[in-house]
Computed example of a mutant assay.
Amino acid sequence: MSADDRIRVQDPLRASLIPRPTTLPGEVAERLRQAILQGDIVDQNQKLPSEASLATSYGVSRPVIREAIFMLKSDGLIISQQGRGQFVNPHGSSVFRLDTGMDDGDNLAELFEFLLSVEVSATRLAAQRRTADELRQIRDSYARLYDATRELADGTAEDEQFHQSIVRASHNQHFIAFAEFLDARVRRLIRTARKNTRNRSMDLVWQVQAEHKAILDAIEAGDPELAARAATTHLHNAAARLASYRE
């Protein structure tokens, strides 16, 4: 790789050569985030260097720096002070981030540990608290998922609806709100596993379906511990399937 294909980052901005990514502002934003969190680049007043200084240090244009800073403003990590420049938010970022991808095995494992803590608890509560109407909704969503599996359809939307109906039956507004956040960022990994499973083996597809059925059966029985175990098994297996596709 030639020098033109790299960004040169100078001390104290994490001196290293960074391969030029597809989204350059996003890579610069992440490097800035790490430098800010480590306290490498701000002065005693938590002020960032100027756009021109950052552009020179990172070897990129000022528009790239401007877009990277805009990304960090959107996260609440950076705030502007009229006529004074850009400063680190003293309260820290106001946005919770989950950006793990399939290419990072360690982070992926930690992500599933985190997902287990949310989904298993919600499933346990759903077995305890679900109403007759909510149980019917869970059954209906499972039936749609079963039909999609039988018809070799994509099934990702039905999979998502099944899990959402369970979380809603937990009657915990925090679980419900956070599940919506997870659906947009984390469940895409599980949906990737579903697609890859379908492409590899229909036997595996029906194994996944059996895992869903075990969760449904436990919720129907009103057995919170059985429901929690079924949800744990499903997520452990989903993590294992994702890991196998990375090999």
Rank of each mutant, 00 (worst) to 15 (best):
Arg6Ala: 11
Pro21Thr: 11
Leu24Phe: 01
Pro25Val: 08
Pro25Gln: 15
Glu27Ile: 08
Gln34Ala: 11
Gly39Ser: 11
Gly39Cys: 09
Ile41Gln: 07
Gln46Asn: 14
Lys47Gln: 14
Leu48Trp: 04
Ala52Cys: 09
Thr56Val: 13
Arg62Cys: 01
Arg66Glu: 08
Lys73Asn: 05
Gly76Asp: 04
Ile79Ala: 06
Ile79Val: 15
Gln82Ser: 07
Gly85His: 08
Gln86Trp: 10
Gln86Tyr: 12
Gln86Arg: 05
Asn89Asp: 09
His91Arg: 07
Ser94Gln: 10
Gly101Val: 04
Met102Gly: 11
Leu108Cys: 14
Ala109His: 06
Val118Gly: 03
Ser121Cys: 07
Thr123Lys: 05
Leu125Phe: 13
Gln128Ala: 06
Arg129Gly: 00
Asp140Asn: 06
Tyr142Met: 05
Arg144Gly: 11
Arg144Asn: 15
Arg144Val: 04
Tyr146His: 11
Glu151Gly: 04
Glu151Tyr: 08
Glu151Phe: 07
Gln161Ile: 03
His171Tyr: 02
Asn172Gly: 07
Gln173Gly: 08
Phe175Ser: 02
Phe175His: 06
Ile176Gly: 04
Ile176Ala: 10
Arg187Val: 08
Ile190Met: 14
Thr192Asn: 04
Asn196Trp: 11
Asn199Cys: 06
Met202Arg: 07
Trp206Cys: 04
Gln207Ser: 07
Val208Thr: 12
Ala214Cys: 01
Asp217Met: 03
Asp217Glu: 15
His234Val: 11
His236Ile: 12
Asn237Pro: 00
Ala238His: 03
Ala240Cys: 06
Leu242Arg: 03
Ser244Cys: 04
